[in-house]
């Protein structure tokens, strides 16, 4: 019983980061209308940024959080201006292949620069735990969970209270509406794409401590985010948090209870992704 609750607790803590990354993917899909295979690479960059600052400057990853947010926002904006915007009028195929190409390029660039090894950022508090009765809570996962929820809350406030946020939701629902608010669709796209990247960048810093930085860590999270977004309903922002929770819990249960579950964890996501897509297609008339 305690093992079960501890497992569920671990899953719950992980769901925050998942929701954060997947929300970014859902933003670019829902608002810009692009399936971004390179989404996780912003996360990978955030993770390496955190690692580099820590290894070279001894900078605490807490400081890297803000830096990664800004850096990823900037890179995301540049990617939008330079690569995404030119292919927006092009067929879906071209858009998909472009982001796929970007993902391959960045992953392998990282491989050339840093090698395939995983690198962990280990500040003094990395292994700190809180005890809660018979349960253990990792301080870092708990912090990451709270921070993720905080960021998602801020995003929600931004989307519902600010003019730009309203315009963004308007674009997500109807491609014509933003003009009415006197805001160019193009600016909304730029902002949404930048924000999506920034969320992934921050998540990357958290993961550099909880998990590791590696060239492929981003792509793994792209795929996990696809699974979450497909389960939530494509482009549906509200469904992302519950979907992330379901998947994170399922993942935790598999890794605890299935023999040799560690390697099967990823299969859970892919299976859910596959079934969610297929199920959705067969249900619609």
């Amino acid at each position: 019983m305690e093992l079960l609750l501890q497992t569920l607790l671990n899953g719950l803590l992980m769901s925050g980061v998942y929701a954060l990354v997947a929300t970014g993917l859902a933003l670019s899909l829902g608002v810009v209308g692009i399936v971004n295979f390179a989404h996780g690479e912003f996360l990978m960059m955030g993770a390496f940024l955190s690692y580099l600052f820590f290894a070279l400057q001894g900078l605490d990853p807490l400081f890297s959080l803000g830096l990664a947010f800004l850096a990823a926002f900037l890179v995301g904006g540049l990617v939008y201006q330079g690569l995404i915007r030119p292919v927006l009028p092009a067929p879906e195929l071209n858009q998909m292949l472009l982001t796929f190409g970007l993902s391959i390029l960045l992953q392998n660039l990282a491989l050339l620069l840093f090698g395939a090894d995983t690198r962990v950022v280990a500040p003094s508090y990395q292994a700190a735990t809180l005890t809660l009765g018979p349960f253990f809570l990792g301080a870092v996962p708990l912090g990451a969970f709270m921070l993720s929820l905080g960021l998602l809350f801020l995003l929600q406030v931004f989307l519902t209270r600010s003019r730009l946020g309203l315009a963004m939701r308007a674009v997500a629902q109807n491609r014509l509406a933003p003009g009415l608010l006197g805001i160019e669709a193009d600016q909304v796209y730029l902002l949404a794409f930048g924000l999506a990247a920034a969320l992934a960048g921050v998540a990357g810093v958290m993961l550099s401590v909880i998990l590791y930085a590696s060239p492929t860590v981003g792509f793994i999270f792209t795929l996990k985010s696809f699974a979450i977004v497909a389960l939530a309903g494509l482009g549906n922002l509200k469904g992302v948090v519950p979907a992330a929770l379901v998947l994170a819990l399922a993942e935790a249960l598999v890794s605890t209870y299935l023999p040799g579950g560690g390697g099967l964890v990823e299969a859970v996501f892919f299976l859910v992704l596959f079934l969610a897509l297929v199920g959705r297609a067969w249900r619609s008339p």
């Binding site: 690569l83 292949l97 190409g101 993902s103 391959i104 390029l105 992953q107 392998n108």
Partner: peptide, 10 residues
């Protein structure tokens, strides 16, 4: 070496 493939694709 897949860097090249990514760049070419883009």
């Amino acid at each position: 070496y897949l860097v090249v493939y990514g760049a070419i694709l883009i």
